[in-house]
Design a binder for these strands. Structure first.
Length: 567
RNA sequence: CGGGGCGUAGCGCAGCCUGGUUAGCGCGCAGCGUUCGGGACGCUGAGGUCGGAGGUUCAAAUCCUCUCGCCCCGACCA
């Protein structure tokens, strides 16, 4: 490709809309252009990278036994109502009406469509296992798209769905996918780690994410340095050590005039934070819920929503709490009636807690569970934080930011049951198909590659996904011989099947070198009067400083050798 | 949805507070010349419904009202 003809123009200045490295560099390199919030045009250079990423993914999916197909983006809303996931996706689901006023959704994912499709085909255990995938545009009306391609509203995703006869089969399919995913990231030059995850709106049981640790990532990873167990902060657990024990003393009222927060009350009563019980109020799908947790811990709203099976959880306002009869500032589960109480299991780690009294300016000492109050549910709903103790090995938990570059779910049979995807087993009995789903955002993967592979000059593409392999860079093109040599090398390299970006522009060396660096092409090949004096060309790899002179007549084969694996 | 910021040429910005020639500057773009191994220089030139609508005024990029859009923080989010 001749650079003079390429539909791209590099920019020296950083577009004001971008503040992450990948977003800035993709814009500056002329690869990306925003159309509207969270919606992007991919210019030719970006498109080449995306196609290479897709090819790697296809290759791994096919090796794992996947069959590629293509499913519609436009989907009848009824299908979503059947599974109830129109509600779990809520406003993130783009919907529209056709001319007959029938409601349609733009697919944010494709479980519904593929399960219905599979149900028409899968009849016997002999049809299983089945792995189907596609690379398709998804639409999600994110509340706030951000970071360029990190969180877009329209984006390409590879989504594979596995169909198995039982949990064991699902386990095998899941394992295959974990391995295939590992290969994909490795081939893309990304050091992705596997972590435990919450399954969110997709639903299902086990779920894992592949994360790339990176400061600009929007997810928090909680991990243990000793046993290397890692989880999304939404899912992470920490050990809740026993902090006190002994005899439960009689409940005692104390006046706490003007002290409301845990900090104020514990300081005033000279009780450590973990010797108190904190009350927090949430609205879960229009029902007020009273949450109790040890005073030193925070509520993890994802865990809370899961244990409540709620799709619309938010903090209650003070007015809502008061309307329900709660004495804010001194709220207590003790003696509370008519309100659902959810307690974190940390309430069992000690005795004689300080809690509210449901009376203004009053708290209770020596509150003990379950002697003094009952909870409708006791579960782990606490936020694990850096510094907490690892529940697995007792080590210290650490925290890091990460970009989620893949997410896999063991769905089980809840969708297949609802969508009538059944099969007959060897004994003639009918069962719902057991499903899994596995997604990789293509654009986000590209952005993650840039986040992890750049320097202050620009992008440094791994060879496997680089838009072109060679940046052919003649200097002083008007000097006799230079262009002739460049043209002939260009022809030679293309004949060898190498992807060459030929900088045939009349520009100064500085401009060309800087563009070569910004675009991040793995190998720069310079031809100038200076190199031609020695009958040679100069090679320079993008991440390296050193250059190498190679005789003109050996250049093509030398370059070919660089990009041929020496296996 | 709450808070903040911003819409002026392809990109980055100034001008607005305090209304008043022909709306400027840098990059980029076109032409000519001199240069040129890490974003050269000179000259010339093209390119603008000042996000949109309404209002105030003799006069609006500038003041007022409404509206649309974009970005950031938070809520939220496979």
């Amino acid at each position: 490709m001749r650079l003079s003809r390429l539909f791209a123009r590099t920019q020296r200045e950083v577009p004001s809309e971008a503040d992450t490295a990948s977003h800035q560099l993709l814009l500056r390199a002329g690869m990306l252009r925003q159309l509207t919030a969270g919606v992007y045009c991919y210019l030719p250079l970006a498109w080449r990278v995306l196609r290479k990423i897709e090819d790697i993914i296809r290759d791994e999916m096919n090796k794992a036994g996947g069959q590629e197909l293509s499913l519609p983006v436009l989907q009848p809303i009824e299908l979503w109502r059947k599974t109830g996931r129109d509600a779990s996706f809520g406003k993130s689901l783009f919907t529209l009406c056709d001319r007959k006023e029938r409601q349609l959704a733009l697919g944010p994912t494709h479980e519904e469509v593929i399960t219905q499709l599979a149900s028409q085909h899968v009849q016997s255990y002999r049809d299983l296992p089945l792995l189907l995938y596609q690379i398709q545009t998804k639409f999600r009306d994110e509340p706030r798209p951000r970071g360029g391609l990190i969180r877009a509203r329209e984006f390409a995703m590879k989504d594979l769905y596995s169909f198995d006869a039982d949990e064991e089969g699902l386990g095998q399919s899941y394992q295959k996918m974990l391995e295939a995913y590992g290969n994909i990231y490795k081939r893309c030059g990304l050091p992705a780690i596997l972590i435990e995850a919450d399954s969110g709106a997709i639903g299902g049981k086990d779920s894992h994410e592949f994360m790339v640790v990176c400061e600009t990532g929007e997810d928090e990873v909680i991990y243990c340095d000793s046993c290397h167990r890692a989880s999304n902060a939404e899912k992470a657990t920490s050990a809740k050590e026993r902090i006190s024990s002994g005899k439960a003393l009689p409940v005692e009222e104390v006046a706490t005039p003007g002290y409301y927060s845990i900090e104020e009350v514990s300081d005033f009563l000279k009780v450590p934070r973990h010797g108190t019980l904190k009350a927090v109020f949430y609205m879960a799908d229009k029902e007020l819920v009273f949450v109790v947790i040890r005073g030193d811990l925070e509520v993890n709203e994802v865990k809370l929503a899961n244990s409540l099976h709620s799709t619309g959880l938010r903090l209650a306002t003070e007015e809502e709490a008061k309307a329900a009869g709660i004495v804010t500032g001194s709220a207590s589960p003790v003696g509370l009636k008519g309100i659902k109480i959810i307690a974190d299991d940390s309430i069992k780690t000690g005795v004689n807690f300080v809690a509210g009294a449901n009376k203004p300016d009053t708290h209770l000492k020596n509150v003990n569970y379950p002697r003094d109050f009952k909870a409708d549910t006791v579960a782990d709903i606490a936020l694990a934080r850096a510094g907490d103790t690892c529940p697995g090995c007792g080590g210290k938990l650490l925290s890091a930011q990460g970009i989620e570059v893949g997410h896999v779910f063991k769905l089980g049979a809840f969708l297949s049951s609802k969508l009538d995807a059944f099969f007959t087993d060897a004994g003639g009995a009918r069962h719902p198909v057991v499903m899994g789903c596995y997604g990789i955002g293509i654009g986000r993967l590209m952005a993650a590659i840039v986040e992890l592979n750049h320097d202050n000059k620009g992008i440094i593409w791994p060879t496997s996904v680089a838009p072109y392999l060679v940046y052919l860079c003649p200097l002083y093109p008007e000097t006799p011989g230079v262009m002739a040599a460049a043209e002939s090398l260009y022809t030679e390299l293309e004949a060898l099947g190498l992807e060459v970006l030929f900088d045939d522009r009349v520009e100064s060396p500085g401009v060309k070198f800087n563009d070569a660096d910004l675009l991040g092409i793995p190998l720069r090949v310079t031809i100038s009067p200076r190199t031609l004096e020695k009958e040679s060309v100069e090679l320079k790899r993008r991440p390296e400083k050193k250059t190498e002179l190679v005789p003109l007549d050996k250049a093509a084969s030398k370059i070919k050798g660089i990009f041929t694996p020496s296996s």
